[in-house]
Amino acid sequence: MAPQNDEQSPRRIAIPPRAGVGLKPEHYRTILDTNPDIGFFEVHAENYMGAGGLPHRYLSRIRDNFPLSLHGVGLSIGADRSLDRDHLKRLSELIERYQPGLFSEHLAWSTHDTAYFDDLLPVPYTAETLSRVVSHIDEVQETLGRQMLLENPSTYLAFAESTYSEIDFIAEIVRRTGCGLLLDVNNVHVAATNQQWDPIRYIDEYPLPHVQEIHLAGYTREADEKGRTLLIDTHDRPVDEIVWGLYGHTITRLGPQPTLIEWDAKIPTWTELKAEAERAEAIMFAIGRKEQSRARFG
């Protein structure tokens, strides 16, 4: 007879084409007490890799009431070394336990030798990096038994040795691995400003049919030594007006998509965070209606 689990894993619930927010411990109680009308919650996988305790209790209860997506920050897919098998196993167990509707990770590296840097570090866009990233994503998808989404990075500098554009690099990863994509529109604005790219063109040329989720967040403005604007992806404030504009453009091209508000530092009140999600949803639905009427009359 097959072994019985004491705790039955929940059924996987798809993430709807609505707005969600990153789940923060500061908001656990309010969410459970008020049962807000929100599309979904997303958590960082590494924050729920403790053995037990309150984080799991709260997440289980929230997972009972809302769709959940899982966002990894520590897999280091862009590293030149083998993936950390222990970490992949923990990820697999977490996915088994919570059955998130989507799982995403970054085009970045964060570990080297034994050190974990807790930052999403950039990779050179070369054939060598491409084949490493592809084999890592293959391993992740094989181990987890599901498709993962890859997120475009915020970058502050470029590598002289890069031979691919970022978009060609990402498109080739998708072609070779069959992974899906997470389009972080704030990252597009940050990277496009820092690299002097055209953000509209970036979005238009991105492999949009593979996008299954969008991220929005706030950034900080600084300048480099030559006085050029340098944007930092800080997730510590509201989404910028320019990014809302780019989001509208993205939704016009893509139709409604699960859209996450990321706010990870200087955590706002629940009301303020929820208002950001409502704004995203308003844009999503307004453009959706316009598209519908255009289809009907135009």
Binding site: A158, F159, A160, Q195, D224, E225, R228
Partner: peptide, 15 residues
Amino acid sequence: PGLVGPDGEPSPKRF
């Protein structure tokens, strides 16, 4: 070396 700004020149501030 080789970590550069949009003009292809080194940029310590970015690193």
